[in-house]
Simulated scan of single mutants.
Amino acid sequence: MTAPQSELQRIMDALQESGMTVEAVEDGALVRDGETRVALFAEKDHQGGVIVRLHLDLDLYVEEDSLPDILMGMNLMNQGLDYGALNLDPVETDTEDDDVPVTFAVLGRSVLWLRDLGRSELDRLREHLRRFEAEVTETVERTLHGSKGMSA
């Protein structure tokens, strides 16, 4: 008798069967679509179902002294997002120097609750994953390449 598959493994298998490139990393999975890589984490919800967290690293970094302008711009961008949100995470540094400004990475994040891991819920996850990546990437690119940049 084999042990039941984890929620994460079942999701990874379903995404691979639908043609997506998926690889296991530490406690999650990396879903690749062209040049884009979305980190996916899944855990059983204690009230039933599965919670899926998506993280999209945008390779954008912000210095501490730019935070007021960046936060205002991110707030405006987040208002137009339906499938995720932009967040700032402090970047770990090797230095203990308090005078060095903190750098933040700009990340796209999304959370999706699945009722179960049946076909219709996995289809909903695939669509959410596709839309999340497209929406966040498009919003950031449009803002960065637009005439006003990230200024609010």
Rank of each mutant, 00 (worst) to 15 (best):
T95N: 05
E135N: 02
D65I: 09
V62N: 08
E63H: 09
V38P: 02
D82P: 00
E138A: 12
P90T: 05
Y83G: 00
D59W: 06
A29M: 03
S110E: 02
Q79G: 06
R115D: 02
D69I: 08
E138T: 14
D94N: 07
G49L: 04
P101C: 04
N87M: 12
E43Q: 11
H55R: 14
I51R: 10
D82E: 06
L58A: 10
R32C: 01
V62H: 11
L30C: 04
T137A: 06
H145Q: 13
G28Q: 05
D45N: 12
R119L: 05
A105H: 11
G146V: 05
L129I: 06
E121G: 02
L81M: 09
D33Y: 03
E133L: 01
R109K: 08
L125W: 03
S147I: 04
G118V: 02
E26V: 04
E141A: 12
D97F: 00
P68V: 10
I51N: 11
F132D: 01
R126A: 09
G80D: 11
H55V: 13
T103K: 15
H46S: 08
L88P: 12
G80W: 06
S110R: 03
R119G: 02
L144W: 09
V52Y: 04
G80Q: 12
V111T: 13
V136Q: 02
E64T: 06
D98W: 04
V25Y: 02
V52W: 03
V111I: 08
L122G: 00
D65M: 12
V50L: 01
T143R: 14
E43M: 07
A85H: 08
A29H: 05
V111E: 10
Q47H: 11
T143P: 09
E141W: 08
A105R: 15
R32Q: 13
G49F: 03
E138L: 10
V22G: 01
M74P: 04
D69P: 00
A134P: 00
H55E: 10
L67T: 09
L58G: 09
D94R: 05
E135R: 04
L125C: 01
D89E: 14
T143V: 14
R130G: 01
L86F: 15
L125P: 00
D33S: 13
D116R: 05
W113D: 01
I51C: 03
L40P: 00
L114Y: 07
N75F: 12
M74Y: 07
G28Y: 05
Y61A: 15
T36V: 11
M77W: 10
G48A: 03
T103C: 14
V106C: 13
E43A: 10
L60F: 14
T137S: 11
N87L: 11
L107F: 05
T95R: 04
V106K: 13
L125N: 01
Q47K: 08
E35K: 05
L88F: 15
K148T: 09
E133Q: 15
N75I: 09
L122D: 02
V140F: 13
D97G: 02
R109T: 14
L81H: 04
L40E: 08
K44Q: 12
A134R: 14
E92R: 13
I51P: 00
E23Q: 12
V102I: 15
Y61G: 07
